[in-house]
Amino acid sequence: MSDGRGTPPSTDIFASDLLEGETALVTGGGTGIGKHIALALADHGADVAITSRDMDHLEPVAERIEAKGRRICATTADIRSRDEVDAMVETVLDELGEITILVNNAGANFLSPAEELSENGWRAVVGTILDGTAYCTFAVGEHMIDNGGGSIVAMGATNSERGAPYHAHSGAGKAGITNLMQTVAAEWAQYGIRANTIAPGIIETEALSSVWDEAGRDRDQIGRDIAMERLGSPADCVPITLFLVSDAAAYVTGSYFAVDGGQLVADAGHHLE
């Protein structure tokens, strides 16, 4: 388990220069899963750009990446706006020269019964999850097409595969991400671009903990409902990301990888006694 200060031990199997010469953009790169991925990309040789709406979240991560000897670009953007996404991507290209890896990680969520979702609440979550992923993918994709290829990874979620009470907005947005990645994988393979979806299960991030605290959810009970009987950590999502953005996954595109501790299969195989 990572201590939060560097590359998770499970990534030691990857060469330290695995991503030498690559330049990655990680959305939502200042906190949670995105922070861990950004740091691991730098640990394995990539220069890194990180973006979110809050520079206060980005600056500590940027300092750590710079201390690793990698080039870093930290820039803010509201990815629900295509204009802001285009400006953010131009800033990254101006500072780092290229983008060969895109990790669409930024998200948003809150719990709400479907019948109580307001238009603003729906748009805030779906706009960040689906629109933001689409805008970043299209903007960076244009550059990758002109630049000879690249790898795109998007963070979906296992709650997109089945009904997830109180998550109608986020579940719908995450389901759209999977189809979006499959579609651009099919369209852009001719340009040397690969696109895949990672679907985390219940990953205990700061944002999720806040949502649970507000809703009074029991973490221990949630963990018992997972086949591996524990919640995930952000570090659990790092190794599959490193694999997918590296040349080791050169023949992998349009695919979906659940990282959920067996949550999706727990109903079929858990507590058989």
Rank of each mutant, 00 (worst) to 15 (best):
M1D: 13
S2G: 11
S2W: 07
D3A: 14
G4W: 07
G6R: 04
T7K: 00
F14S: 00
S16R: 15
S16D: 15
L18Q: 01
E22P: 02
A24V: 05
G29V: 00
T31S: 14
I33Y: 07
K35A: 12
A38Y: 08
A40R: 00
A40D: 00
A42L: 10
G45C: 07
V48G: 05
A49H: 06
T51N: 05
T51F: 02
T51R: 03
T51G: 04
L58M: 10
E59F: 01
A62F: 04
R64D: 08
R64H: 07
E66F: 01
E66Y: 03
E66M: 01
R70T: 03
T75W: 12
D78V: 02
I79Q: 13
R80L: 06
R82D: 13
D83Y: 10
E84K: 08
V85P: 13
V85M: 10
V85T: 14
M88F: 08
E90K: 15
E90P: 07
T91N: 14
V92G: 02
L93N: 06
N105A: 08
A106D: 01
A106T: 04
G107P: 05
A108F: 08
F110R: 13
S112I: 01
A114G: 13
L117Y: 11
E119T: 13
R123Q: 13
T128R: 01
T128M: 02
I129F: 03
L130N: 09
G132L: 06
Y135F: 15
C136E: 09
C136D: 09
A139R: 13
V140C: 14
V140N: 11
V140Y: 11
G141E: 00
I145T: 14
D146I: 00
G148K: 09
G149D: 07
A154F: 07
G156Y: 04
G156Q: 05
A157Q: 01
T158P: 06
E161K: 12
E161N: 09
R162G: 09
R162T: 12
A164M: 10
P165R: 01
A168L: 04
G171E: 03
A172F: 10
G173R: 05
G173A: 08
K174R: 14
I177L: 03
L180C: 00
Q182M: 13
Q182T: 08
T183W: 09
V184C: 06
V184D: 06
A185T: 11
W188G: 07
W188T: 06
A189S: 15
A189Y: 10
Q190H: 09
R194D: 10
N196H: 05
T197G: 03
T197K: 03
A207N: 05
A207M: 12
S209H: 11
V211G: 07
D213R: 14
A215P: 04
D218A: 07
R219G: 02
D220G: 12
I222N: 06
R224P: 01
I226D: 01
A227V: 12
M228I: 15
M228F: 15
L231P: 07
L231Y: 08
P234F: 00
L244G: 02
D247C: 06
D247Y: 00
A248Q: 13
A248D: 11
A248R: 13
V252I: 15
S255C: 12
Y256E: 11
F257M: 01
A258G: 12
D260R: 11
D260V: 10
A266M: 09
D267M: 10
G269M: 14
H271K: 09
L272I: 12
